[in-house]
Simulated scan of single mutants.
Amino acid sequence: MQIPISLYDYYEEYKEKYKSKSQLVRVISESWFKDNMYCPFCSNEKIKRYDNNHPVADFFCNDCGEEFQLKSKKKRLGNIVVDGEYNKMIQAIYSCSVPNFFFMSYSPMFDYINDLIIVPKEFILPGIIKKRRPLSQRARRRGWTGCNISLKDIPYSGKIYLIKDKNVIPANHVRMNIQKISYYRKIKNVDKRGWLADILNILIKINKEVFTLKDVYAYIPYLKVLHPQNNNIEAKIRQQLQILRNNNVIEFLGKGVYRKL
């Protein structure tokens, strides 16, 4: 078993400087990240930090240009992570300016990082952004509407672990998993990526290695809720399965039967 990565030295360094717990956590996690994080998309072993109050991201890679935002959460990541203003997030997705997201969970005493995952920006889609209730009229920012990121609605292949259950995943494995989804990252249209992500999620729900087209068709009512304007769901399903087949995510065995690879 590996020795867990600790944040405690950073806690000791900053605990007297910040009275706000949320600000302290942000400084601790971002400082560790700046000192230790590599770029998962290229061979660069260090990423850089933007100046404070950068509008889009916290960090960037000087070699490949990828941008990153870090979200930290105590104990376990769970299904929901709190994010910023809802409309700005949706606008960023459709304008293709949303960064890649890192999600970190840490122990209450900062003695270990439990999990660290990266969700490439192409998997940050409108369907995973959940609007929160607007702030009341009594609030200082009355009417402001925040959002949550629903991690459970992101396909498994779009949640790539760098640390899992305190164990560090080798960087070459992380980059290999990023490479496996390169086909998905090449799809520029947000709605097309959304359809493919929905089918990937359905394949997870179909809990067997060999499945049939009929198994996927069983989720047509679910897809109609997600895509109420589409009147040709069956054809759309077949189209997405063809994309996954062409990119070696699934194998076609014939007569409407597939195998997950």
Score class of each variant (00 low, 15 high):
Met1Phe: 09
Ile3Thr: 15
Ile5Trp: 03
Ser6Tyr: 06
Glu12Pro: 09
Tyr14Phe: 04
Tyr14Pro: 01
Lys17Asn: 03
Tyr18Gln: 07
Phe33Tyr: 09
Met37Gly: 04
Cys39Asn: 08
Cys42Ile: 06
Asn52His: 11
Ala57Leu: 01
Ala57Val: 02
Phe59Met: 01
Phe59Val: 01
Phe59Ile: 01
Asn62Tyr: 14
Asp63Thr: 15
Leu70Asn: 00
Gly78Trp: 03
Ile80Pro: 10
Val81Thr: 08
Tyr86Lys: 00
Ser95Glu: 04
Asn100Gln: 09
Asn100Lys: 04
Phe101Ser: 03
Phe101Glu: 02
Phe102Ile: 05
Phe110His: 07
Asp111Thr: 13
Ile118Val: 10
Gly127Ile: 07
Ile129Tyr: 01
Lys131Met: 13
Arg133Lys: 14
Gln137Tyr: 10
Arg141Ile: 11
Trp144Gln: 10
Asn148Pro: 09
Asn148Asp: 13
Asp153Thr: 06
Lys159Ala: 03
Ile160Thr: 02
Ile163Tyr: 00
Pro170Asn: 08
Ala171Asn: 11
Asn172Arg: 13
Val174Lys: 08
Asn177Trp: 10
Ile181Gln: 07
Ser182Met: 15
Tyr184Trp: 13
Lys186Ser: 14
Lys186Glu: 14
Gly194Met: 10
Ala197Cys: 05
Ile202Cys: 01
Leu203Met: 08
Leu203Gly: 05
Ile206Pro: 04
Val210Arg: 12
Tyr217Ser: 15
Ile220Ser: 11
Leu226Gln: 13
Asn230Met: 11
Asn231Thr: 10
Asn231Cys: 12
Ile243Cys: 06
Ile243Asp: 08
Arg245Ala: 15
Asn247Gln: 12
Asn248Arg: 10
Asn248Met: 07
Val249Gly: 09
Gly256Leu: 03
